[in-house]
Simulated assay, not measured.
Amino acid sequence: MLRSAVDLTRDLAEARPGIYWPDMLVSAAIGYGSLALAILTQHIGVAIAAGVVAAIALYRALLFIHELTHIHKNALPGFRFAWNLLVGIPMLIPSLMYEGVHTLHHARTRYGTADDPEYLSLALMKPWSLPVFLLTAVLLPPALLFRFAILTPLGVLFPPLRRFVWERFSSLSINPQFRRRPPEGAFRRMVFWQELGASAWAITLLGSTYFLGWRPLLIIMAVQAFAAVLNQLRTLVAHLWENEGEAMTVTAQYLDSVNVPPPAFLAPVWAPVGLRYHALHHLLPSMPYHALGEAHRRLHAHLGGQSTYEQASYPGLFMLLGRLARNTMRKD
């Protein structure tokens, strides 16, 4: 299966700037425009509708952070800098929160183990763990604000605090046992500038309440919380979460991951930027998001509907949530 995936998709492996740049920029523009409307309007219905549009658009723009961890550093000149400047830092999720962390999830000897920062055996937990896991996303905006506006400046004065914050509050991980190693080399310099920018912006946001009141900041945080819940919902169905911590074969890792191919028409909303093909992404981690649909079609045609490849495909979000919930109930 892996050999077929590589052989059939060699011509799709190049990241296309003509797709990446417009997609990211238009998503960000729609998101910020809708967010401004939500803040400025006095009509509650318009504010809610604009806030929903802003959350969905900014969620899509934010998920380009996933692409930044996989594309070659020379593939899209300036894209990482522009994304951080326009999306990552304003949303207080600079790429340092994912780069150097997500690739550990793809390490073949780490996936699904205690050393995987992005894996929890959710299917083996208690039923109440799922709503708790989902609702903790609501706390992300105030947590990020506190991390960059308060803890980052204090970390300059107190190095032990900085080490603690880096180890535990500097990655988009779901494994509470994960401890991040100190940054090194060129990445360390990038972390410095990203933290400086995010800290300055977080302090500015807090300071704006003195002049503008709390309403704009609370709307911003509500939009970000909605986007975070969407991402947490996507995370719940990105894998089956059935591994108990032991190392897994490549095939087992693939089958523990999930594709939601067409005709699931809502998948591009809750799993944008190619993440509806999450199992395929684990086969071909460096494949650009815009090529995953064509790669899936080729593999489906070549391997057939009864192949191992097709066993990772599911019809939609609610079916996957139901399966996960039933598994937790069996463990209760």
Rank of each mutant, 00 (worst) to 15 (best):
L76N: 05
G100Y: 06
F164T: 01
A137Q: 15
I150N: 00
W128F: 13
F81E: 14
L144Q: 02
I89T: 03
S170R: 01
I150C: 07
S171I: 00
V156Y: 10
F169Q: 11
L145N: 04
S171P: 02
D115A: 14
S95A: 13
R162F: 03
T109E: 15
G155M: 00
L144I: 01
G78Y: 09
R80C: 06
F169R: 10
R110L: 14
M97N: 05
Y111M: 13
T103K: 11
F158G: 02
E118P: 04
T109D: 15
A143F: 13
A114T: 11
P159M: 07
P117L: 13
L96S: 08
L120P: 02
R80S: 11
L86V: 11
Y119Q: 08
P131H: 09
G78K: 09
L104Q: 14
P142E: 11
P77I: 08
R162N: 12
R110V: 14
G78V: 11
S121W: 06
M91I: 07
L134C: 11
L161N: 00
P141T: 04
T113F: 02
P141I: 05
S129V: 11
L124Q: 13
A123V: 09
I93Y: 13
A107R: 15
R147I: 05
R163Q: 10
V132D: 12
S170T: 05
H102P: 02
V138H: 06
L130P: 08
F81W: 13
A143Y: 10
S171V: 00
P90M: 01
F79Q: 10
T103R: 14
T136C: 08
L139D: 09
W166P: 00
W166K: 01
L104I: 15
L144R: 01
L76T: 09
V132I: 15
T152A: 14
G155T: 00
R163N: 11
L76K: 04
L122G: 04
G88D: 10
S171W: 06
L76V: 10
P90V: 01
T136N: 10
V138S: 02
F169E: 07
V156G: 03
